[in-house]
Amino acid sequence: MIKQNQIEQAAYQIMAKAAIDIPEDYRRGIENMAKWEEGELSCFVLQTMMDNWDAASEDRRPMCADTGLPRFYVKIGNEAKLESGFVGLEAALRSATARATQDIPLRPNRVHPLWRTDHNNNIGINAPEIDWSFEPEADWIDITTVHKGGLFGTDYRMLFPGDGIDGIKRFFLDTLIAFGKRGLACQPAIVGVGLGGSKDTTMVLGKQAACLRVVGNRNPDPKVAELELELKKLGNSIGMGAMGFVGTSMVADCHIEVGFTHTGGMPMSVHTFCLSSRRATVRISARGKTEYRGDPQWFTPYMRRESIEWPEKKYSSKQSG
């Protein structure tokens, strides 16, 4: 039985880890980019960012004062038992957000869209968002928090099958260039691409691709994986780097997620995570043990719904028989 206060404590911890400690995979990605960056100003920016991450970890202060819109991604094992149910879990996440905002401290970014009312705790109507997912044959819960800036670097477009890979490349470039000027998108960053589904699915997939997969991770479909690498290379050949200065550092990695879509369409979204890509994950076991990690491991085979039924073996045995 997983207790509500264990969830609250663990969520509070990942709020701090996400805000303060840059994930290892991402840091290595940026270090690598800095090695090859020939634009002097762009390289200076990357080196300064690495100094900033050191300062954040040493001082235990947030690496970026723009908290973005802090939010949660929760994966619940099908066998997990929660003391206070799903409503209790959500209450724990809201409480942890408010406490972390005060203690770390985080900037209270969340305001009413019209009246600009600020509760000074990053809690409000429909905030923070929680994305729920499930995992077969597991008795743990995974909680990931993401602190992502949200004003620039994201766009959506309805493309059509005939637009093909050219259409995808053009829209990818359009988004990177439009928001990359002056570095409004805070590049380089992990860029997520959502393809397919309905419009809202496209947006969700692209966002999750940017925020919940680590640098170096590839889509299990080899052809999609190839396209990821191609788009990464394309983004880094614009001639633009950090802060929109001349350079090559735009895309720390590119992740694509797909969803079956309308036969006539090919909707696409592009999401640029931050140069301070802030995410942290905790797994709470059935006995209440907590394990912290940088890789959200969000896109499991079940998450991508790669088969008709689950577990997959049921379906495939019928097929082969």
Partner: peptide, 11 residues
Amino acid sequence: VGYGTGALLGR
């Protein structure tokens, strides 16, 4: 610089 040097500026 980089728009995310919150910790350095905080110092």
